[in-house]
Computed example of a mutant assay.
Amino acid sequence: MTRLTPAELEAARDRLVPDVVADGLKVLFCGINPGLMTAATGHHFARPGNRFWPVLHLSGSTPRLLRPSEQAELLSYGLGITNVVARATARADELTAEEYREGGRVLSTKVVHLGPRWLAVVGVTAYRAAFGDRRAVVGPQERTIGSSRVWVLPNPSGLNAHWTAATMAEEFARLRTAAEH
């Protein structure tokens, strides 16, 4: 992967990154918002320390480890990616409470339109902020959006030291099993 300069990363601030979506997915993964590396490259979960792609493979959701630049291949496995908040920032703590709430409303509309079996929000804090559910924990939720079930996954950011790649992969695998039935 090409190394980007700090100026190139900063130039990606507020840039929008297209979703990787289709109707009727098994799972629509939902990140918090694009980071600057994602916005600069146009590839979701592109930051080198992010564990999304390795965990997705370790969980058995993809037959091989995909690179962020291969994100379109997810559609062939019935998987997609979107975000709670569309605008790119260096850190999620740059987002406002209103952006999370509005992101939850926009996401709900998107999910009703696309009709995935499962919406998988990666990050319990983002899920709580977007949907006003302060008691949510990692795992399947009672909430449905249209006909879609909701699952909260651990945040795959390298900063999330509470979860190892192996324990995250176990949770992703639980979702994969549920989505296949």
Rank of each mutant, 00 (worst) to 15 (best):
83 N>P: 08
86 A>S: 14
87 R>Y: 07
87 R>K: 13
88 A>T: 06
89 T>I: 05
89 T>K: 10
89 T>Q: 11
90 A>W: 08
90 A>G: 13
92 A>D: 02
93 D>V: 08
95 L>Y: 08
96 T>I: 06
96 T>Y: 06
97 A>M: 09
98 E>N: 10
98 E>G: 07
100 Y>F: 15
102 E>G: 03
103 G>N: 05
104 G>A: 04
106 V>N: 14
106 V>H: 15
106 V>F: 13
107 L>C: 04
107 L>V: 04
107 L>D: 01
108 S>W: 08
108 S>Q: 12
109 T>L: 13
110 K>A: 10
111 V>D: 02
111 V>M: 06
111 V>L: 04
111 V>I: 11
112 V>S: 05
113 H>G: 11
113 H>C: 12
113 H>T: 14
114 L>D: 07
114 L>H: 05
115 G>K: 07
116 P>F: 07
116 P>H: 07
117 R>F: 09
117 R>M: 03
118 W>S: 01
119 L>N: 02
120 A>L: 05
122 V>F: 01
122 V>P: 00
123 G>K: 02
123 G>Y: 10
123 G>V: 10
124 V>N: 07
124 V>S: 06
124 V>K: 03
125 T>W: 10
126 A>W: 03
128 R>N: 09
129 A>F: 08
130 A>G: 04
131 F>L: 14
131 F>E: 13
131 F>D: 13
131 F>T: 13
133 D>L: 06
133 D>W: 08
134 R>A: 15
135 R>S: 15
137 V>A: 13
137 V>L: 09
137 V>Q: 13
137 V>T: 13
138 V>T: 14
139 G>W: 11
139 G>Q: 11
140 P>F: 11
141 Q>S: 12
142 E>R: 14
142 E>N: 11
144 T>C: 09
145 I>A: 06
147 S>R: 15
147 S>Y: 09
150 V>Y: 05
150 V>Q: 02
150 V>P: 01
150 V>L: 03
151 W>A: 08
152 V>S: 02
152 V>F: 05
154 P>H: 12
156 P>E: 06
156 P>T: 09
157 S>T: 15
157 S>R: 03
158 G>E: 03
159 L>S: 11
160 N>C: 05
161 A>M: 10
161 A>I: 10
163 W>F: 05
163 W>T: 00
164 T>H: 01
164 T>L: 00
164 T>S: 11
166 A>L: 07
167 T>G: 00
169 A>G: 02
170 E>M: 02
171 E>C: 04
171 E>Q: 13
173 A>T: 00
174 R>A: 10
174 R>V: 07
175 L>C: 02
177 T>N: 09
177 T>F: 10
178 A>Q: 04
178 A>V: 06
180 E>C: 09
